[in-house]
Design a protein around this nucleic acid. Structure first.
Lengths: 220, 220
DNA sequence: TAATAATATGATATTATTATAACATGATTA
DNA sequence: TAATCATGTTATAATAATATCATATTATTA
């Protein structure tokens, strides 16, 4: 189930929104204390944020900017008809959409579902053969096994997983690993791949990474 | 460069849109004769369609349905604020997004670029006799078979497929394969063609590449 | 139809590319 | 301070793509 954070200071509207979304099958999280909106929004870990443009303490645009510095969660700005200029601003600051008050429930729901559909398409898959990639912990784990990966191995695996089934060139991998560093022996990548393969094989994932000579690697 | 088809009957708006998009670096194609919108839209072969919901002869929704029967080109519906119900309908008929008139240029451009980014990611395959050439995967595949091609084979097949039904000279192929390399035995190409033919035949694609002596090769 | 040029193909050789193991270094941690 | 670990480097081995060669098969033209 998708979780939506509502940042709206008008209590009546907030509750109405929350009801509407719950009826539509979403999980909602309402912010009520606006002295600390940013942290609450970020720690709520939701899939979408409804952000009113006029909030106490820190207004919606400022908040949006702060959110964007830390996260790519889709944001829908809520504005009043009178402040159309704001719409432009918000979008260029990274909002994904906006609605004007008074809002039309059907349209709001449509926009929400459109955006969620879009963003879930983009969201990279984080599991592989029953193993979940936990990049925060730096490991790959299923029920019984836990494969601890080093920083390099993690980067490589992530790159491959992002494009699972597609060829990832050695150049891409080199860039991901050592972008702006001075010259690094080309074989370093080969060695890192080799080590990653070793760890995967140790846990029973054999032949996951295939070599396509002169083209790159591919995660099957 | 991306090409956008504009289906909008209000001349002023149409020209304005076209200007806006051209300035943003898109190629545009405007429909002016609406007695035959569908064919024009389909034959324009563009990357995205801006479709007004109120058009003469056949309205936007009908058009959208017809378009969807033949193609997956992304469509952005253009509606007026007054006809909000239409938005609901359009989205469920398969529009990818919509904007309301009077539209905000910044937002329109944002939506366009978001959709194009999404769709260009998906479009990688060209197909041949039910086989899809997937250069990202470096293979040629249908439901059951998957033919892995080497780099050279891929280059050759791509060249031939790009000009399917037309003769591709040996020189063109040589250039595509070994452009800035020093002298390479002319027979190398022949051998590579031969190997490619072998792989195709192994998967049941016989006689796909025909030799036209003194002229080149042609993919039937 | 014979002669010639162009292309095919199988076998072999070559080379670039990648793999692996062993070592070196520096950072982190106990 | 010792021990462990990540990771780059070096040296050497394995591999696969692919160019070349020799020979066979076609097509073109005389």
């Amino acid at each position: 189930m998708h979780r939506i954070t509502i940042a709206e200071d008008d209590k009546a509207i907030r509750n109405e929104l929350s009801e509407l979304l719950k009826n539509a099958g979403y999980d909602t999280f309402c912010i009520t204390d606006f002295s600390d909106s940013l942290n609450q929004i970020l720690s709520a870990d939701s899939d979408l944020i409804l952000l009113d443009i006029n909030l106490p303490h820190m207004n919606g645009e400022q908040l949006l900017m702060e959110i964007r510095r830390k996260s790519d969660i889709p944001v829908i700005m809520v504005t009043s008809r009178t402040t159309e200029i704001d719409e432009v601003m918000s979008m260029s600051y990274g909002a994904d959409d906006y609605i004007t008050k008074p809002y039309n429930p059907t349209i709001l729901l449509l926009r929400i579902s459109a955006i969620l559909k879009r963003s879930s398409k983009e969201k990279v898959c984080t599991s592989y053969h029953g193993f979940k990639l936990n990049s925060a912990k730096g490991c790959l784990s299923d029920d019984k096994t836990e494969i601890t990966l080093t920083k390099n191995e993690l980067i490589i695996f992530q790159q491959l997983l992002d494009k699972q089934g597609e060829i990832v060139t050695r150049d891409e991998l080199m860039t991901a690993l050592w972008d702006n560093e001075e010259y690094i022996n080309d074989n370093a990548l080969t060695v890192n791949i080799s080590r990653l393969r070793g760890k995967l094989a140790d846990s029973g994932i054999e032949d996951a990474i295939e070599t396509r000579k002169k083209q790159g690697y591919i995660l099957k």
